[in-house]
Design a protein around this nucleic acid. Sequence first.
DNA 1: TTGTAGGCGTTATCAT
DNA 2: ATGATAACGCCTACAA
Lengths: 350, 350
Amino acid sequence: MHMTATLARMKEEKEITIYDIARRLNVSAATVSRSLKDHKSISSDTRKRVHAMAKEMGYRSNSFARNLRTQQTNTLGLIVPRLNSYVVSSIIAGIENVANEHGYNIIICQSLGSAKKETSNINMMFDSRVDGLLVSLAYNARNIDKFKMFFDKNIPVVFFDRGCEDPRSLNVVIDNYKNAYDITRHLAEQGCRRIMHITGNLSTNIYTERYRGYQVALQDSGLAFSDDLLLVNELTEKDGVDAGNHILQMANKPDGVFAANDNCAAYCLQTLKEAGVKIPNEIAFAGFNNDPVSRIIEPNLTTINYPCHEMGEVAAKCLIDHLSGSRTVDHANTVVLRSQIIVRESSLRN
Amino acid sequence: MHMTATLARMKEEKEITIYDIARRLNVSAATVSRSLKDHKSISSDTRKRVHAMAKEMGYRSNSFARNLRTQQTNTLGLIVPRLNSYVVSSIIAGIENVANEHGYNIIICQSLGSAKKETSNINMMFDSRVDGLLVSLAYNARNIDKFKMFFDKNIPVVFFDRGCEDPRSLNVVIDNYKNAYDITRHLAEQGCRRIMHITGNLSTNIYTERYRGYQVALQDSGLAFSDDLLLVNELTEKDGVDAGNHILQMANKPDGVFAANDNCAAYCLQTLKEAGVKIPNEIAFAGFNNDPVSRIIEPNLTTINYPCHEMGEVAAKCLIDHLSGSRTVDHANTVVLRSQIIVRESSLRN
DNA sequence: TTGTAGGCGTTATCAT
DNA sequence: ATGATAACGCCTACAA
């Protein structure tokens, strides 16, 4: 690798452009540009020479210039409620995998449960001219109005985890209704008569769906629902502890609990257990997500196997497919990933 | 909000530029540009009119054009080993917080423990012309050679979690040595004589530091180290279970275990407990991170309180300070965040 | 206070 | 197969 002193200096001081390469090779910038992207109408000889020289000079394509010219960014936007949860961070890991493979960058922001921040994030993504958007909404969206600007410009938007109810939207989700139904039925089959449901904000569709599954399962099991069996909170660790203490003070205690996530379920279960409640015989437990804590809490938690990583991969693939224009028009606009109940000791009475 | 039909059409069909605004207002594009960024030499009257018109027309600044002109991107790069771990995802949440506040986008990629992928990520970030870089290295870096291109161009790089040993690097870390020392001493004080250490790849400095703290603590406690007391793995859930089974088969078992993360510690502890080993009296346990599992496993895990969210915030602030040029020259180039031992039942003998 | 004009680095459309 | 040239949208001396 021989390199002249001037060349070495250029490399350190300023960006090398295709013009610099062109000059040294006595060709035009157009030829360099074409060579670099292996345009077919370029002789393999010059192409090789250009590539070699580009490498030698330490050339790096300027993506802004290219973006400005081509009107696309090779960047995907990602909006999530929060980054530091088991489900979300695993989904992102899956997304990043696929995106990276296809040469896309990802820019991320979290809405932190604030509808206002979410809106500003959406705008920010639009301003950033992302090629496509991946969204997990903090709260329910009946329609895609918030994303009108994306649709107007034919920028694909994929909703994952929490889908969007608008029939025009692309969704990658699991069957929250069915999972909640199954797990509630399971509790009923274990002999639970008063099953409590702990869940998150009911203006978020994953929680309304789970709630609905729970209710229908109660009906189908011939069990009554009453308001004191529903507890809505943020499903945090603290909420789990609070829920446990709440249950301890109830005159008419539940004999089963189905919480909409494992973290909350685990801390609730723990609180009850410490107060001497026998799990599962006095109160049986079920959670959701198959979070690592579900396999640590004792008894291990019956839960729903949420395919996080897969969901990330599928959502990213779906988006990238649309970007490549290879979408089939009649393609289903909602992908429902397989998920199922995992029965563990927390709900198994003998 | 009155809007002409033509205007409405413009808005949907193509991007509004400052020229469009200029034309409608009978001013020059320069005036529009200046008004939009509240340049002081513009009359407040025209500035208001420009802002109003921009809003009415649905103008959005084209960041590529601006980036191309100004040579900066308002984007921070973030490289982590993996996204889906408690520590990393919490750090990212902190980073995103601060970055967002200051108007920076973040682009993320994970190295997944592959040095090759890490290198390609670094290059990719460089190509993306990030204004600054935040890095948690998969493996140890004795120097910043890999980042030479960044330093050559004065692009600040901040190393967090796993620092970089190069004296010129900026680091945000905790005192892994001291924490490991303290927690090992604590185990010794509880009467442990054969303390095992389970840790990750020793070419990663957080693990070498923890290992060193462990060893010095053994010495200071008058305890001998032997090779069979060191177990190196990937610290995963499975590794925890395997470690537990391994211990069960040891002829000369340890009476204490210090694992370099809680997840591995918890699954190891659980495996032993299920096999009938009494915790902490037969084997005392300690972990690292204060992961949620540490508060679920029984007995609760003695651990180190890792300030993840704070680390993310500090790292981002540090980077952004440098970008704003407000850095003090004599400023320390390594920030050590406060962290300390949390003693819980897994290590408390009575 | 505002306008003019050149250039940031690419790509794409014509020519040749 | 290659070259000349004009955008892409914005910013910023310099001029007025």
